[in-house]
């Protein structure tokens, strides 16, 4: 089913190449230094030994060239250092902005939830029973909290293997496998999955609805506790995890739970779509 074999390109590490290259480079530079010394000092000695009066200008040139080269190296090195410092501060700035925006999103979500509750209350008073939303739709869509029996699936990175880090693709396959196994509602690290939830990758972090998650991943799924676990283990989701655990040492476990509580997907709604 899930053909996980081409998940990652094989690690190609050339051991002999780079080190051999370094050795050659080292020899070459030594040879250059040696030749500078040889070629500049020898004629001078020769000139002095022969008692000639034509002093060679070579030593002066060496010093000048050496100084220029030194200056060039130094300035380029310093500029590189400054650039790196710039990069660090730009990065710090970005991270600060990310943290602030995340904070702002949390506040807005809380604010929106509070407003929705107030609006709903007034509506209920004014409209009475005319205002009744379909309960199954509410459950399936992820707009409200739900509870019920199910399973808790825990997945952990293998810190000793770069390939043992869980990526978005892995969690996508797992969620897909759980839906396929008959799950009615799923949360990943407390984030409820809806028709609008995106499981993506941002650098080293997996994001669910732009919120970054870290290992271990706790995936709660409501459904038949017995059937859900065995169906998942037998389908593409389970074989994906087995592949990861066999080849990269990722660990995972399924526990049955008699009662799970999954929160809503906060801020869920539509802006562009209308009922046709």
């Amino acid at each position: 089913m899930g053909d996980a074999t081409d998940r990652r390109p094989p690690d190609v590490t050339v051991v002999t190449g780079p080190s051999a290259r370094t050795e050659r480079a080292l020899d070459a530079s030594m040879e250059l230094l040696n030749s500078i010394q040889r070629d500049t000092i020898d004629p001078e000695y020769a000139a002095v030994a022969s008692g000639g009066h034509g002093r060679s200008r070579a030593p002066v040139l060496v010093v000048v060239i050496g100084l220029i080269a030194g200056l060039m190296f130094t300035t380029s090195g310093l500029r590189g250092g400054l650039r790196a410092a710039d990069a660090v501060s730009a990065r710090t700035e970005l991270i600060t902005q990310i943290d602030q925006t995340e904070q702002r999103i949390q506040e807005l979500r809380a604010q929106g939830n509070q407003l929705s509750i107030e609006i709903e209350q007034i509506e209920r008073e004014q409209l009475g029973d005319a205002h009744v939303l379909s309960e199954p739709d509410l459950v399936w869509s992820g707009l409200i909290s739900v509870s019920g029996p199910g399973i808790l699936l825990t997945i952990s990175d293998n810190p000793k293997d770069a390939n043992g880090t869980i990526v978005d693709q892995d969690l996508r396959e797992v969620a897909n496998g759980l839906w396929l196994a008959g799950a009615e509602a799923i949360s990943i690290n407390g984030h409820r999955l809806s028709a609008r939830t995106a499981i993506r990758q941002a650098g080293a972090a997996v994001t669910v609805d732009y919120r970054s998650l870290t290992t271990p991943y706790r995936i709660e799924a409501i459904g038949d506790p017995g059937a859900l676990g065995s169906a998942f283990t037998g389908n593409s989701g389970g074989s994906w995890l087995s592949f990861l655990s066999r080849n990269y040492g990722v660990t995972w476990a399924i526990e049955r739970r008699s009662e799970l509580l999954l929160g809503p997907d906060a801020g869920l709604g539509v802006d562009h779509a209308g009922v046709a």
Partner: peptide, 11 residues
Amino acid sequence: LAILAGTQPAV
């Protein structure tokens, strides 16, 4: 809600 749950046509 109906659009998200897929129970109504959408445009």
